[in-house]
């Protein structure tokens, strides 16, 4: 309590006297006043808002009895690990090879996370459920045929240490396809 009293007295004394001197001698002008306004830390120029509607659909690729299906939708508030949220295009997929379902995330989890990076291009990350790995994904709607979309999946870099088993090479789904809008 003695500390609190000392602190309180000091504070009251300091600030009731220090700044409330009636008739105190005016200080000379400070000279230089106000400086340039600065950008906020970490500011980036806002990314242009690119149309996403052309991607938001269900897409399919078929080769005989092998079918890859992709549903793309928009999540305006994708919650990030740091508590912030960002808009994103998210997707789920299924892959059936020779009439056997190999993997599906439909109605389960997000396996595509992407953003428009140009008028007709989505750039993002695809998750291979079977091999438990991810790859860089580039999706492009063809300007002259907007119901067609190219799919390019590429491996990601990364040096890994640890005891986790080395994932199998390549991806479960085709790495290059031309998808057709079906819905």
């Amino acid at each position: 309590m003695r500390y609190l009293a000392v602190l309180g007295l000091c504070l009251l004394g300091s600030y009731s006297q220090g700044h409330a001197q009636q008739g105190a001698k005016p200080r000379p002008p400070a000279g230089t006043v106000i400086t340039k306004p600065l950008h906020e830390e970490g500011d980036k120029l806002p990314s242009p808002v690119l149309p996403a509607e052309k991607f938001l659909s269900t897409w399919e690729w078929r080769s005989g009895t092998t079918v890859f299906r992709l549903q793309l939708s928009r999540n305006l508030n994708l919650l990030l690990p740091n508590g912030k949220s960002v808009p994103a295009i998210v997707g789920q997929h299924s892959y059936t090879r020779n009439r056997i379902l190999k993997e599906t995330s439909l109605n389960k989890k997000m396996t595509v996370l992407a953003k428009p990076v140009a008028g007709n291009i989505l750039s993002g990350i695809f998750t291979d459920l079977t091999k438990n790995k991810s790859g860089w994904l580039t999706i492009s709607v063809m300007p002259t045929t907007p119901n067609k979309m190219s799919w390019v999946l590429e491996p990601k870099e990364g040096a890994v240490t640890g005891n986790a088993p080395m994932p199998a090479a390549g991806f479960t789904v085709p790495t290059t396809m031309t998808l057709t809008r079906v819905l």
Partner: peptide, 26 residues
């Protein structure tokens, strides 16, 4: 713990900070 604890979080990190053809790390 926030961003690297599992693969899903790493994908979020890459999505936010890497995947941007204008200002991204990638």
């Amino acid at each position: 713990k926030a961003w690297l604890e599992n693969d899903d979080k790493v994908r979020m990190l890459e999505y936010v900070y890497y995947q941007d053809t204008v200002n991204g790390i990638a």
